[in-house]
């Protein structure tokens, strides 16, 4: 393992985020705060408790998930897309680093940033609503696994995209709808039975549910189902990334 190279890639990616601190950190915090103001404080006061938890507190895990998914995907995809776009990726491809090390540097940095953001949003949320975390370690595990998996997904998108449009396409058309329909703002018990069944095909439901379980000990699906889904996701993402590098897809003609 070429640790110096991994460290270099990681630090470079992290400092890129620091250079764009406004876009990277401030804007997700502001948008999450807006959700709390609108859904938590304004609408939430008209909604009674959901499954024994106040509505404001109920949406905290879902909102963190929403931010985590979108930020992981967009950070990681941009991180690898930009060097491809500018051409400076030649240096990474000609360096004595393995593909695993490249992924570790890029995805590691993107996931780290997402986890930090997640914690910042968690802190921000505590300013708006009181809530408890029943299983902090499980919460951290979910945070890390989700950040990692969706950073990998972002990495794949960043390699697949051949323009800025495609780069935005997946987050906009897939991630955001799935998250909104994934039980961020409601418990799927509130849906008619048919839609409950349909919703169970949405993988984000399992993530939000598992994450919520770590806060309040209750979820739409069992915690084990949630863990299984996120692990499966991670495995698929890893398999695709390793195929990309072995085949040279979009990187090496």
């Amino acid at each position: 393992m070429n640790l110096e190279s991994v460290k270099t890639l990681y630090v470079a990616e992290m400092s890129r985020s620091l250079r764009t601190v406004l876009q990277s950190i401030v804007s997700p915090v502001i948008s999450t705060s807006l959700y709390f103001v609108v859904f938590g404080a304004a609408i939430g006061t008209r909604i009674s408790e959901v499954e024994g938890v106040s509505y404001g507190a109920f949406i905290v895990p879902g909102l963190i998930m929403l931010m985590l998914l979108t930020q992981s995907v967009s950070n990681a995809s941009f991180g690898i897309f930009f060097p491809r776009f500018s051409g400076s990726i030649y240096e990474i491809l000609s360096a004595p680093v393995s593909y695993f090390e490249v992924v570790l540097g890029f995805v590691g940095a993107a996931a780290t940033k997402s986890v930090i953001l997640g914690l910042i949003v968690l802190g921000t949320a505590s300013l708006f609503v009181p809530f408890t975390i029943a299983h902090p370690l499980v919460m951290l595990l979910f945070l890390v696994l989700t950040a990692l998996t969706f950073s990998l997904l972002g990495f794949i998108i960043g390699i697949w995209a051949d323009g800025f449009e495609k780069l935005q396409l997946v987050p906009l058309l897939v991630i955001t709808p799935l998250t909104f329909l994934g039980g961020t703002f409601y418990s799927i018990d509130m849906l008619p039975p048919l839609w409950q069944a349909v919703t169970l095909a949405n993988p984000v439901v399992y993530l939000v549910s598992g994450f919520r379980w770590s806060f309040y000990g209750l979820g739409d699906v069992s915690i084990w189902a949630s863990l299984a889904v996120i692990t499966l996701f991670l495995a698929v993402a890893l398999a695709v990334v390793s195929w990309i590098f072995r085949s040279g897809y979009r990187l090496k003609p």
Binding site: N2, E4, S5, K7, T8, L9, V11, A12, S15, R19, F82, P83, S86, G87, S88, Y90, E91, I92, A95, P96, V97
Partner: peptide, 25 residues
């Protein structure tokens, strides 16, 4: 390389140091 490619926003010092680290030195 032939094309002038670079990370537009980093400094000369940083980008050259990055290259050294990337090659594991």
């Amino acid at each position: 390389p032939q094309e002038l490619t670079s990370e537009a926003f980093s400094t000369v010092w940083d980008t050259v140091s990055f290259s050294r680290g990337l090659f594991g030195k």
